[in-house]
Simulated scan of single mutants.
Amino acid sequence: MRREEKNALARQRIFEAALREFSEKGYAAGSLNTICAENNISKGIIYHYFTDKDELYLLCVAGCFDALAAYLMQALEGISGSVEGRLREYFDARLRFFAENPLYLGIFTDAALNPPEHLISGISEMRRSFDELNISVLTGLLDSAALRDGITVAAVVEDFRMYMDYFNLRFKDVLAGIHSPEQALREHEERCHRQLGILLYGVLGDRDENR
Rank of each mutant, 00 (worst) to 15 (best):
A184R: 02
R86Y: 02
V174H: 05
I151E: 12
P116C: 00
F50N: 03
S144M: 13
A69P: 05
E182P: 03
A62F: 05
G63I: 08
E117R: 14
A67D: 11
E5H: 09
Y90Q: 05
A69Q: 13
C36M: 04
L175E: 04
A99R: 12
H118R: 11
I35Q: 01
E55C: 06
E158V: 14
R86I: 06
I14D: 00
Q195K: 02
L9C: 06
E24H: 09
R20P: 02
A146I: 15
G177C: 07
L147S: 11
H118K: 13
T139G: 01
L119Q: 03
A17H: 01
E100H: 07
E55S: 14
E182N: 10
H179T: 15
A29H: 12
S121P: 00
V157R: 08
L56K: 06
F98R: 00
L196E: 12
G122E: 08
F97H: 03
F50K: 03
A111C: 05
L105R: 00
A146C: 07
G78S: 08
H188W: 05
I46K: 00
L196H: 04
P181Q: 03
P116G: 04
Q12N: 07
L200T: 11
I123R: 02
I198K: 06
L119E: 05
T34D: 11
I120Q: 06
A18S: 12
R96S: 10
Y49A: 03
N7G: 11
L72C: 13
A154V: 13
C36H: 01
G26A: 08
R211Y: 07
L32F: 05
I41D: 04
D173S: 12
E125V: 15
F91V: 13
A28D: 13
L103H: 03
L95M: 08
P181S: 04
G30I: 15
L76I: 14
A176L: 08
I123L: 03
S82A: 08
V174S: 05
